[in-house]
Design a binder for these strands. Sequence first.
RNA 1: GGGCCUGUAGCUCAGUUGGUUAGAGCGCUACCUUGACACGGUAGAGGUCACAGAUUCGAGUUCUGUCAGGCCCACCA
Length: 885
Amino acid sequence: MREGTTAPHCYDGKFIPELNPNVKPIDPSQLPKHFESRQEEEKWARRWEAAGIHRYDPSRPRAETFSVDTPPPTVSGSLHVGHVFSYTHTDVIARYQRMLGRNICYPMGWDDNGLPTERRVQNFYNVRCDPHEPYAANLEIAPASKNDGPPRKISRPNFIELCLSLTAEDEKAFKALWTRVGLTVDWSEEYSTIDRRCRRAAHISFLDLYRKGHVYSNEAPTMWDVDFQTAVAQAEVEDRKVAGHYHHLRFDVAGAGESFVIATTRPELLAACVGVTAHPDDARFQHLFGKQAITPVFQVPVPIFPSRQVDPEKGTGILMVCTFGDATDVFWWREQNLPLRQVIGRDGRFTAIEFGSPGWDTRDAAAANQAYSALTGKNIRQAKKIAVEQLRASGALTKEPEPIEHSVKFFEKGEQPLEFVTSRQWFVRLLDKKEQLLEMGDRIEWHPDFMRLRYRSWTENLNMDWCISRQRYFGVPFPMWYPVKSDGSPDFDQPILAPEEMLPVDPMSTPAPGFTERERGVPGGFTAESDVFDTWFTSSLTPQIVSGWLTDPGRYANLFPMDVRPQSHEIIRTWAFYTIAKAMLHAGSIPWRHVAISGWVLDPDRKKMSKSKGNVVTPMHLLDEYGSDAVRYWSANARLGTDTAFDQNVLKVGKRLVTKLFNAGKFVLSQTGEPGPVTKPLDLAFLASLARTVENATKAMERWDHAGALSETEQFFWRGFTDNYLELVKARSRSETDAAGRASAIATLRMALKTFLQLFAPFLPFITEEVWSWSFAEETGEPSIHRSHWPSLQASGGDPALFETAIACFAAVNRAKSEASVSVGRPVASLRLAANSGTAARIHAVLDDVLGAVRGSECGLEERSPLEDGAIEIAHIAFAEPQAG
RNA sequence: GGGCCUGUAGCUCAGUUGGUUAGAGCGCUACCUUGACACGGUAGAGGUCACAGAUUCGAGUUCUGUCAGGCCCACCA
């Protein structure tokens, strides 16, 4: 631990602050009239970077280190004020920890792979990736304009090139913003989730999971987005309420001469119906179990079976099972060993099928095929319409569709309901590890604590293993090939994994080990796995990426598990959850000790800011108008986990605080005269109050309540320091007659200013550094306040009540002046104060300072015992004539 | 349907383990050109602490219920 400034101490009843007596006062006329935030911010950002203020020192031990698992922002467009908000919270924490003497590891990453980037590139250039297109070297594509026509098809490598170049541009803009905000990020620790280091980490992660038996692939129905044409994981699925209709369809019972009516929201799936089910206790349908139903239109015989999953109250109490309408259909399909009749293809359109062929039994193949041919090639909405018409024509529709609202699963980034499509996917096995995952969550400290419940409830409700393969392009590829069998098909059971020294590898452009490129895709040769990883597969490794997992054991030991993961609450189920899972599977460890959850920024109508709502406030103009410190002030005013309405008033207050610090600093540091021992009762009393403020602010920071620390500091800065103490000692600090009093005042002023600057430094890094540089940098030998030590004032031996008494006297006279509409600067000709004896004694101790502040020359004191302790009344006051000129 | 958070002045928010008369800033009103700062200062007005019960000598604070807003999860025929 570095040597911090030692606390001032008491000696022979005198308070000796640790101050250099040979300080030179500053010349205020050399300073600008106002703090020019923009100019100063750029200046300090440059100097900090040049001086390596933010640099992590790998040589220092774990105990002195504080590591931040920074969220890599998604690089797809622009940042909004919510980003600045939450990143400021992290920055305040990191700067505070640095001032405690810690070695800060605060990297910045960019999350630039995955769908958001692909979508941005598609729109920006009006292109689509078509893996069948050949690569075009030196392809020049201009940004899209309005009338570009249909998107241009480009090859996968060309598409990836565009993704890389566009994200590189965006990252520059992001970095400029973060620098402007003053994030104390170590830019030598920059990474992006598509870069070589991250691809390699993802590959090593996959190989490790594979070796440990935690991953598997299988061909099974999985949730599928028909627009993006990829599988998705449970964590990326959300429910949305949509309008739909119940369609009541009559099914005949085979050989029984009776029928029943089911209610379905998906009549278009009738062709995929493979069964009918009802609750086993439902007397209406018990006699049907074991018989066969005949589907209308297609005339397909299907089994009728009982299932406790059925809710007799819902619909008509009996329903059709299709492959696949929803997750329960998948369950029944497995449980009853029903045939697979997949009618919806990967593109969301009805595929060509032939009734009467194996697996597609029907009593009337001609009729079935004729009906189905109308559906072939149609999308779901079109098919639904046609299917309803067919049902109506056949007489199976027993009544007109009945409108209902129901919830349907959507990919969070998608616009069409998810379908269940059978495909081969890779999974990380998690369902069998819920207990361990829950235990990991409990070992982490969550701020605020109730956020752990989000993690807990998600983990408890997990019902699918983690699907990590995506049928997309701009992502980290699987480091894997498959042998090609003699029939030309891949042998999925014998994957060829890349050896570690090959990593990272793109199996699409590199042949499998032991093969040459000529053997790609031919029997006896190899074929690449063309899928890419779920972006969370890489993002969930940020602690490992930053800490040098498997590449730098010394660094890893110093950084992992990391100290804090800052993030927002809506991605607890994805980012936090997957990161915890990865750390558990790879290292049997928690990934970090703390999670700090920032709330959302809401618009004035209390709605979450989001691009789709169009209520986003961008940060740059706010930084220009109010200054970075003011924007940070607004951010830091919000406690962790609390959503905050965007309020420009708070920015104004922040700007005011910056100005006040600037001016107070100018005043204090321009006082001429040597600081000396603090002996005056008022000074000692004020320092005692200041010590209490330091203690409270420190306690607040220690309980992760940065907003509390800020408000504690701010309150005493205004009321205690600028409004009162400064006014009370102004006269004495310039006294020609009271040398000891003047030295005491100057010492106290300087020490207070230094302390306030340090308390504010994590929140307002620019203004505090600026004022620090005027004098304290030289005096302390610490060029940057951000490398100075967090203040720890010891008791000065003063009595805070004395300070309160002085404030009360000052306020009483001011009130009298205000009531008499007299200028505060007007001298007081005569004054008589009344108080009880205890208070009077305290007044006596500070009276000369009070008189100095109110411009009085003398004051009578009278004791009135009925007055409460601390209460002060003005028995008499008279003002001098205003001075001419 | 289960769970969590929030509800305090016109607005944005504090209010620690229950304890005098509920706080701050903004806004509003009046006044003050003051030698750090007019990007300033002094003073003032403004609240049934969402509602109803309960516990207690005492509740903004604890408990129960209700209402309102937000979020997480589940349900998806």
